[in-house]
């Protein structure tokens, strides 16, 4: 009586081209291309370990506290002294939130860090922002000790023109 054709003919074939995750994939936030040792003040390793590549936020907040402002001031000084680097600032959220809201919240956090760096004299065209929402936690427990580390904005260095 009723005839129908099968609309959903799906093959498992993967035709998507493989893409390289420019930002280091899971756990991105470490300076993946870190060249030179941490003792070299112009190295990404030094930036990451001695300057400090990340700032942390309170629950559902994007306000920079005193510690965050101090870290970002040091980042700004370093970026002004090492002009071959550009940076992508990654905003992250803890898992206690809905997925898309957390994407927007991560963008807000990354933007707060970016605005601060620009105000400290870093050229705007050297900075881009990116949000991972709650998709890339670095700590995996489900308590505040982990959440506090995951609510972060991480300044990830890159070399080359135009971030």
């Amino acid at each position: 009586m009723t005839r129908f054709s099968l609309l959903f003919v799906l093959t498992a074939a993967m035709v998507l081209s493989a893409c390289t995750d420019r930002f280091g994939g899971p756990g991105a936030g470490a300076a993946g291309s870190a060249a030179g040792s941490a003792s070299d003040p112009s190295s990404p390793a030094y930036f990451q370990q001695s300057v400090g590549d990340r700032v942390l936020f309170a629950v559902d907040e994007s306000t920079l506290n005193a510690a965050a402002r101090a870290t970002l001031s040091a980042q700004a000084d370093w970026l002004k002294a090492n002009r071959m680097f550009t940076a992508v600032i990654e905003g992250h959220a803890d898992e206690q939130g809905t997925r898309e809201y957390n994407l927007a919240l991560g963008a807000r956090r990354a933007s707060a860090a970016q605005e601060f760096l620009i105000a400290q004299g870093v050229a705007p065209d050297r900075l881009r922002i990116l949000s991972y929402g709650k998709e890339r936690p670095i700590e995996v427990c489900s308590t505040e000790s982990c959440y506090a580390q995951n609510r972060r904005a991480v300044t990830v260095l890159a070399t080359g023109a135009g971030a």
Binding site: A12, M14, C19, T20, D21, P26, E135
Partner: peptide, 25 residues
């Protein structure tokens, strides 16, 4: 802390599953 995600589609009851993307992105 290293989750990989792929798009998939299936019948409402879980049958006939197929993947729409690979895990690279």
């Amino acid at each position: 802390d290293a989750r990989q995600k792929r798009l998939a589609v299936m019948d409402y009851d879980g049958a006939n599953l197929s993947y729409l993307t690979d895990a690279s992105t």
